[in-house]
Protein backbone atom coordinates (compact mmCIF):
# COMPACT_ATOMS: atom_id res chain seq x y z
CA UNK A 1 0.00 0.00 0.00
CA UNK A 2 1.32 3.40 -0.83
CA UNK A 3 0.41 6.41 1.23
CA UNK A 4 1.23 9.89 0.02
CA UNK A 5 1.31 12.79 2.46
CA UNK A 6 0.64 16.46 1.61
CA UNK A 7 4.33 17.34 1.32
CA UNK A 8 4.50 15.13 -1.74
CA UNK A 9 6.88 12.47 -0.40
CA UNK A 10 5.74 8.89 -0.77
CA UNK A 11 6.00 6.59 2.21
CA UNK A 12 5.86 2.92 1.42
CA UNK A 13 4.52 0.50 4.03
CA UNK A 14 5.56 -3.02 3.07
CA UNK A 15 2.71 -5.52 3.15
CA UNK A 16 2.84 -8.23 5.84
CA UNK A 17 2.26 -10.90 3.20
CA UNK A 18 3.09 -10.56 -0.44
CA UNK A 19 2.75 -13.15 -3.20
CA UNK A 20 4.27 -12.11 -6.47
CA UNK A 21 3.59 -14.26 -9.52
CA UNK A 22 3.64 -17.58 -7.66
CA UNK A 23 3.78 -20.64 -9.88
CA UNK A 24 3.68 -24.21 -8.59
CA UNK A 25 3.28 -27.34 -10.68
CA UNK A 26 2.73 -30.90 -9.56
CA UNK A 27 3.59 -33.04 -12.55
CA UNK A 28 1.14 -32.14 -15.29
CA UNK A 29 -1.10 -30.15 -12.96
CA UNK A 30 -0.52 -26.46 -12.41
CA UNK A 31 -1.73 -25.63 -8.91
CA UNK A 32 -0.59 -22.00 -9.03
CA UNK A 33 -0.32 -20.21 -12.35
CA UNK A 34 1.15 -16.85 -11.40
CA UNK A 35 -0.89 -15.81 -8.35
CA UNK A 36 -0.18 -12.33 -6.96
CA UNK A 37 -1.78 -10.72 -3.92
CA UNK A 38 -0.83 -8.98 -0.71
CA UNK A 39 -2.11 -8.42 2.80
CA UNK A 40 -1.70 -5.17 4.71
CA UNK A 41 -0.39 -5.49 8.26
CA UNK A 42 -3.10 -5.95 10.84
CA UNK A 43 -5.82 -6.93 8.38
CA UNK A 44 -7.52 -10.13 7.32
CA UNK A 45 -7.00 -11.20 3.73
CA UNK A 46 -9.60 -13.69 2.58
CA UNK A 47 -8.50 -16.04 -0.19
CA UNK A 48 -11.72 -17.33 -1.68
CA UNK A 49 -11.99 -20.14 -4.15
CA UNK A 50 -13.36 -23.61 -4.79
CA UNK A 51 -11.58 -26.88 -4.05
CA UNK A 52 -8.49 -27.27 -6.18
CA UNK A 53 -8.22 -23.54 -6.96
CA UNK A 54 -4.74 -23.37 -5.44
CA UNK A 55 -5.59 -21.88 -2.03
CA UNK A 56 -3.84 -24.56 0.00
CA UNK A 57 -0.83 -24.55 -2.31
CA UNK A 58 -0.50 -20.77 -1.95
CA UNK A 59 -0.75 -21.06 1.84
CA UNK A 60 1.87 -23.80 1.93
CA UNK A 61 4.26 -21.76 -0.21
CA UNK A 62 3.87 -18.68 2.00
CA UNK A 63 4.19 -20.75 5.19
CA UNK A 64 7.56 -22.10 3.87
CA UNK A 65 6.28 -25.67 3.50
CA UNK A 66 6.58 -25.73 -0.27
CA UNK A 67 9.03 -23.99 -2.60
CA UNK A 68 7.44 -22.22 -5.57
CA UNK A 69 8.61 -23.08 -9.10
CA UNK A 70 8.47 -19.41 -10.06
CA UNK A 71 7.62 -16.12 -8.41
CA UNK A 72 8.37 -14.77 -4.97
CA UNK A 73 6.73 -14.87 -1.57
CA UNK A 74 7.51 -12.29 1.12
CA UNK A 75 6.26 -12.69 4.67
CA UNK A 76 7.07 -9.95 7.17
CA UNK A 77 9.54 -8.64 4.61
CA UNK A 78 11.49 -11.92 4.42
CA UNK A 79 11.70 -14.08 1.33
CA UNK A 80 10.07 -17.46 2.02
CA UNK A 81 12.70 -19.32 -0.01
CA UNK A 82 15.85 -17.41 0.96
CA UNK A 83 15.09 -16.93 4.66
CA UNK A 84 12.54 -19.56 5.67
CA UNK A 85 13.73 -19.73 9.27
CA UNK A 86 13.09 -16.02 9.81
CA UNK A 87 9.65 -16.34 8.24
CA UNK A 88 8.87 -19.23 10.60
CA UNK A 89 9.66 -17.09 13.63
CA UNK A 90 6.85 -14.75 12.59
CA UNK A 91 4.08 -17.08 11.49
CA UNK A 92 1.48 -19.45 12.87
CA UNK A 93 -0.23 -22.07 10.72
CA UNK A 94 -3.59 -23.70 11.23
CA UNK A 95 -4.74 -25.73 8.34
CA UNK A 96 -6.85 -28.40 6.88
CA UNK A 97 -3.66 -30.41 7.01
CA UNK A 98 -1.75 -28.86 9.91
CA UNK A 99 -2.80 -30.98 12.79
CA UNK A 100 -2.30 -31.60 16.46
CA UNK A 101 -0.87 -34.82 17.86
CA UNK A 102 -3.97 -36.83 18.67
CA UNK A 103 -2.12 -39.14 21.03
CA UNK A 104 -1.20 -36.21 23.30
CA UNK A 105 -3.47 -34.28 25.66
CA UNK A 106 -4.44 -30.68 25.00
CA UNK A 107 -1.89 -29.46 27.52
CA UNK A 108 0.87 -31.69 26.18
CA UNK A 109 0.27 -30.52 22.62
CA UNK A 110 0.69 -26.88 23.61
CA UNK A 111 3.60 -27.52 25.98
CA UNK A 112 5.32 -29.40 23.16
CA UNK A 113 5.14 -26.38 20.86
CA UNK A 114 6.18 -23.95 23.59
CA UNK A 115 9.19 -26.11 24.50
CA UNK A 116 10.17 -26.39 20.85
CA UNK A 117 10.06 -22.61 20.65
CA UNK A 118 12.56 -22.47 23.47
CA UNK A 119 10.35 -21.57 26.42
CA UNK A 120 11.15 -23.00 29.84
CA UNK A 121 9.16 -25.76 31.48
CA UNK A 122 7.15 -23.51 33.80
CA UNK A 123 6.62 -20.82 31.17
CA UNK A 124 5.42 -23.47 28.73
CA UNK A 125 2.85 -24.83 31.16
CA UNK A 126 1.66 -21.30 31.92
CA UNK A 127 1.26 -20.46 28.23
CA UNK A 128 -0.56 -23.76 27.62
CA UNK A 129 -2.98 -23.15 30.49
CA UNK A 130 -3.57 -19.59 29.32
CA UNK A 131 -4.41 -20.66 25.76
CA UNK A 132 -6.56 -23.60 26.87
CA UNK A 133 -8.58 -21.22 29.03
CA UNK A 134 -8.85 -18.71 26.19
CA UNK A 135 -10.18 -21.41 23.87
CA UNK A 136 -12.53 -22.98 26.38
CA UNK A 137 -10.58 -26.22 26.62
CA UNK A 138 -9.57 -26.11 30.28
CA UNK A 139 -11.90 -28.98 31.18
CA UNK A 140 -10.49 -31.13 28.38
CA UNK A 141 -6.86 -30.13 29.04
CA UNK A 142 -5.89 -33.53 30.43
CA UNK A 143 -7.63 -35.62 27.79
CA UNK A 144 -6.01 -37.02 24.66
CA UNK A 145 -6.85 -34.90 21.61
CA UNK A 146 -8.24 -37.94 19.83
CA UNK A 147 -11.21 -37.84 22.21
CA UNK A 148 -12.00 -34.24 21.21
CA UNK A 149 -14.91 -33.26 18.97
CA UNK A 150 -14.14 -31.72 15.59
CA UNK A 151 -14.71 -28.21 16.92
CA UNK A 152 -12.52 -28.76 19.98
CA UNK A 153 -9.74 -30.18 17.83
CA UNK A 154 -9.88 -27.18 15.54
CA UNK A 155 -9.72 -24.84 18.53
CA UNK A 156 -6.72 -26.73 19.93
CA UNK A 157 -5.13 -26.50 16.49
CA UNK A 158 -5.65 -22.74 16.44
CA UNK A 159 -4.29 -22.49 20.00
CA UNK A 160 -1.21 -24.47 18.92
CA UNK A 161 -0.54 -22.02 16.12
CA UNK A 162 -0.72 -19.12 18.62
CA UNK A 163 1.73 -20.45 21.22
CA UNK A 164 4.58 -18.33 19.85
CA UNK A 165 2.41 -15.21 19.58
CA UNK A 166 2.78 -14.98 15.79
CA UNK A 167 2.32 -11.63 14.08
CA UNK A 168 1.14 -13.33 10.92
CA UNK A 169 -1.33 -16.18 10.93
CA UNK A 170 -2.28 -18.56 8.13
CA UNK A 171 -5.69 -20.17 8.49
CA UNK A 172 -6.30 -22.73 5.78
CA UNK A 173 -10.03 -23.46 5.62
CA UNK A 174 -10.33 -23.26 9.40
CA UNK A 175 -14.06 -23.93 9.54
CA UNK A 176 -14.47 -26.66 6.92
CA UNK A 177 -16.44 -29.47 8.49
CA UNK A 178 -17.47 -27.50 11.58
CA UNK A 179 -21.05 -27.12 12.76
CA UNK A 180 -22.45 -23.55 12.71
CA UNK A 181 -21.97 -22.97 16.45
CA UNK A 182 -18.30 -23.99 16.38
CA UNK A 183 -17.81 -21.97 13.23
CA UNK A 184 -19.17 -18.83 14.88
CA UNK A 185 -16.92 -19.40 17.90
CA UNK A 186 -13.91 -19.66 15.63
CA UNK A 187 -14.90 -16.49 13.80
CA UNK A 188 -15.04 -14.64 17.12
CA UNK A 189 -11.56 -15.88 17.97
CA UNK A 190 -10.18 -14.65 14.67
CA UNK A 191 -11.76 -11.23 15.29
CA UNK A 192 -10.12 -11.06 18.72
CA UNK A 193 -6.75 -11.78 17.13
CA UNK A 194 -7.02 -9.08 14.51
CA UNK A 195 -8.01 -6.64 17.24
CA UNK A 196 -4.53 -7.31 18.64
CA UNK A 197 -2.94 -6.36 15.33
CA UNK A 198 -2.25 -9.84 13.95
CA UNK A 199 -2.27 -10.15 10.17
CA UNK A 200 -4.38 -13.09 9.00
CA UNK A 201 -4.47 -14.91 5.70
CA UNK A 202 -7.64 -16.96 5.62
CA UNK A 203 -8.56 -19.36 2.85
CA UNK A 204 -12.15 -20.37 2.51
CA UNK A 205 -14.71 -21.83 0.15
CA UNK A 206 -17.49 -19.79 1.74
CA UNK A 207 -18.36 -16.31 0.60
CA UNK A 208 -20.09 -15.73 3.91
CA UNK A 209 -16.93 -16.51 5.86
CA UNK A 210 -14.84 -14.14 3.76
CA UNK A 211 -17.57 -11.54 4.09
CA UNK A 212 -17.67 -11.92 7.89
CA UNK A 213 -13.93 -11.80 8.53
CA UNK A 214 -11.95 -10.35 5.66
CA UNK A 215 -10.92 -6.74 5.10
CA UNK A 216 -9.88 -7.66 1.58
CA UNK A 217 -10.70 -10.63 -0.58
CA UNK A 218 -8.87 -12.21 -3.46
CA UNK A 219 -10.88 -14.66 -5.51
CA UNK A 220 -8.66 -17.39 -6.87
CA UNK A 221 -9.51 -19.85 -9.60
CA UNK A 222 -7.31 -22.39 -11.37
CA UNK A 223 -4.21 -20.96 -9.77
CA UNK A 224 -4.69 -17.32 -10.65
CA UNK A 225 -6.36 -14.36 -9.00
CA UNK A 226 -9.56 -13.56 -10.87
CA UNK A 227 -10.85 -10.73 -8.68
CA UNK A 228 -9.63 -8.55 -5.82
CA UNK A 229 -11.48 -6.12 -3.61
CA UNK A 230 -13.23 -5.46 -0.34
CA UNK A 231 -16.18 -7.71 0.47
CA UNK A 232 -18.47 -4.78 -0.39
CA UNK A 233 -16.84 -4.36 -3.84
CA UNK A 234 -17.13 -8.00 -4.69
CA UNK A 235 -20.69 -8.30 -3.49
CA UNK A 236 -21.61 -5.31 -5.58
CA UNK A 237 -19.96 -6.87 -8.60
CA UNK A 238 -21.19 -10.38 -8.09
CA UNK A 239 -24.49 -9.82 -6.38
CA UNK A 240 -24.15 -10.98 -2.82
CA UNK A 241 -27.81 -11.85 -2.55
CA UNK A 242 -29.93 -13.91 -4.85
CA UNK A 243 -33.64 -13.53 -5.31
CA UNK A 244 -35.23 -16.88 -5.94
CA UNK A 245 -38.81 -17.32 -7.17
CA UNK A 246 -40.98 -20.35 -7.87
CA UNK A 247 -44.34 -19.68 -9.57
CA UNK A 248 -47.36 -21.62 -8.34
CA UNK A 249 -48.08 -22.71 -11.90
CA UNK A 250 -45.03 -24.11 -13.70
CA UNK A 251 -46.25 -22.73 -17.05
CA UNK A 252 -45.74 -19.20 -15.68
CA UNK A 253 -42.02 -19.81 -15.27
CA UNK A 254 -41.18 -17.88 -18.41
CA UNK A 255 -43.25 -14.89 -17.33
CA UNK A 256 -41.32 -14.81 -14.04
CA UNK A 257 -38.05 -15.06 -15.92
CA UNK A 258 -38.93 -12.11 -18.16
CA UNK A 259 -39.96 -9.89 -15.25
CA UNK A 260 -36.83 -10.77 -13.29
CA UNK A 261 -34.59 -10.15 -16.30
CA UNK A 262 -36.12 -6.77 -16.97
CA UNK A 263 -35.99 -5.50 -13.38
CA UNK A 264 -32.59 -6.94 -12.42
CA UNK A 265 -30.97 -6.04 -15.70
CA UNK A 266 -29.29 -9.44 -16.03
CA UNK A 267 -30.39 -12.79 -17.34
CA UNK A 268 -31.67 -15.03 -14.52
CA UNK A 269 -30.83 -18.70 -14.21
CA UNK A 270 -33.75 -21.10 -14.43
CA UNK A 271 -33.39 -24.44 -12.73
CA UNK A 272 -35.92 -27.00 -11.53
CA UNK A 273 -38.90 -24.69 -11.77
CA UNK A 274 -37.12 -21.86 -9.97
CA UNK A 275 -35.88 -18.53 -11.29
CA UNK A 276 -32.81 -17.04 -9.57
CA UNK A 277 -31.39 -13.59 -10.20
CA UNK A 278 -28.63 -11.55 -8.45
CA UNK A 279 -30.17 -8.94 -6.16
CA UNK A 280 -27.69 -6.07 -6.12
CA UNK A 281 -30.34 -3.57 -5.12
CA UNK A 282 -32.51 -3.88 -2.01
CA UNK A 283 -35.44 -2.50 -4.00
CA UNK A 284 -35.46 -5.44 -6.39
CA UNK A 285 -37.61 -7.75 -4.30
CA UNK A 286 -40.55 -5.38 -3.72
CA UNK A 287 -40.41 -4.29 -7.37
CA UNK A 288 -40.55 -7.89 -8.58
CA UNK A 289 -43.40 -8.72 -6.24
CA UNK A 290 -45.44 -5.70 -7.43
CA UNK A 291 -44.85 -6.43 -11.09
CA UNK A 292 -45.71 -10.11 -10.80
CA UNK A 293 -48.86 -9.14 -8.94
CA UNK A 294 -49.76 -6.74 -11.78
CA UNK A 295 -49.37 -9.44 -14.43
CA UNK A 296 -51.28 -11.95 -12.33
CA UNK A 297 -48.50 -14.41 -11.47
CA UNK A 298 -48.66 -15.95 -8.02
CA UNK A 299 -45.53 -17.28 -6.33
CA UNK A 300 -45.29 -20.50 -4.35
CA UNK A 301 -41.87 -19.52 -3.08
CA UNK A 302 -39.99 -16.24 -2.77
CA UNK A 303 -36.55 -16.24 -1.15
CA UNK A 304 -33.83 -13.65 -0.77
CA UNK A 305 -30.73 -15.64 0.05
CA UNK A 306 -26.96 -15.20 0.06
CA UNK A 307 -25.15 -15.96 -3.16
CA UNK A 308 -23.29 -19.25 -3.16
CA UNK A 309 -19.66 -19.35 -4.13
CA UNK A 310 -20.76 -20.94 -7.37
CA UNK A 311 -22.89 -17.92 -8.23
CA UNK A 312 -20.16 -15.45 -7.29
CA UNK A 313 -17.84 -17.39 -9.52
CA UNK A 314 -20.27 -17.41 -12.37
CA UNK A 315 -20.61 -13.65 -12.06
CA UNK A 316 -16.87 -12.96 -11.70
CA UNK A 317 -15.35 -15.52 -14.02
CA UNK A 318 -18.12 -16.45 -16.41
CA UNK A 319 -17.82 -20.12 -15.52
CA UNK A 320 -18.97 -22.24 -12.64
CA UNK A 321 -16.77 -23.11 -9.71
CA UNK A 322 -16.46 -26.76 -10.58
CA UNK A 323 -15.14 -29.01 -7.86
CA UNK A 324 -12.31 -30.79 -9.55
CA UNK A 325 -11.74 -34.09 -7.82
CA UNK A 326 -8.42 -34.63 -9.50
CA UNK A 327 -7.01 -31.40 -8.11
CA UNK A 328 -8.30 -32.26 -4.68
CA UNK A 329 -6.51 -35.58 -4.87
CA UNK A 330 -3.27 -33.88 -5.83
CA UNK A 331 -3.58 -31.45 -2.95
CA UNK A 332 -4.04 -34.34 -0.59
CA UNK A 333 -1.04 -36.13 -1.98
CA UNK A 334 1.22 -33.17 -1.68
CA UNK A 335 -0.11 -32.26 1.72
Amino acid sequence: MTLSDPSGTVESVPPAIEADGLVKRFGATTALAGASFSATEGTVLGVLGPNGAGKTTATRVLATLLAPDEGRGLVGGYDVVAEPHRVRTLIGLTGQYAGVDEALTGTENLVLIARLLGQGRAASRRRAAELLAQFGLTDAAGRAARTYSGGMRRRLDLAASLVGRPRILFLDEPTTGLDPASRNELWDMVRTLTDDGVTVLLTTQYLEEADQLADDIVVIDRGTVVATGTPRDLKARAGAAVLQMRPTQPEQLDAVRRVAAELAGTEPTVEQGTVAVPAVDDALMPAVVRRLDDVGVSLAELTLRRATLDEVFLALTGHRAVEDDQDTEILKETA
Binding site: L65, R88, L93, G99, V100, D101
Partner: peptide
Protein backbone atom coordinates in the same frame (compact mmCIF):
# COMPACT_ATOMS: atom_id res chain seq x y z
CA UNK B 1 0.82 -40.77 11.34
CA UNK B 2 2.54 -37.38 11.58
CA UNK B 3 2.46 -36.97 7.82
CA UNK B 4 -1.15 -38.06 7.54
CA UNK B 5 -2.48 -35.90 10.37
CA UNK B 6 -0.51 -32.82 9.37
CA UNK B 7 1.51 -32.81 12.59
CA UNK B 8 4.63 -32.91 10.46
CA UNK B 9 3.53 -29.75 8.62
CA UNK B 10 2.95 -28.01 11.91
CA UNK B 11 6.52 -28.83 12.96
CA UNK B 12 7.87 -27.68 9.62
CA UNK B 13 6.15 -24.31 10.03
CA UNK B 14 7.94 -23.75 13.36
CA UNK B 15 11.34 -22.03 13.65
CA UNK B 16 13.07 -25.24 14.67
CA UNK B 17 15.81 -27.39 13.14
CA UNK B 18 14.58 -29.30 10.11
CA UNK B 19 16.00 -32.51 11.49
CA UNK B 20 14.58 -32.18 15.03
Amino acid sequence: TDLQKGTFDRFRSLPIARSA
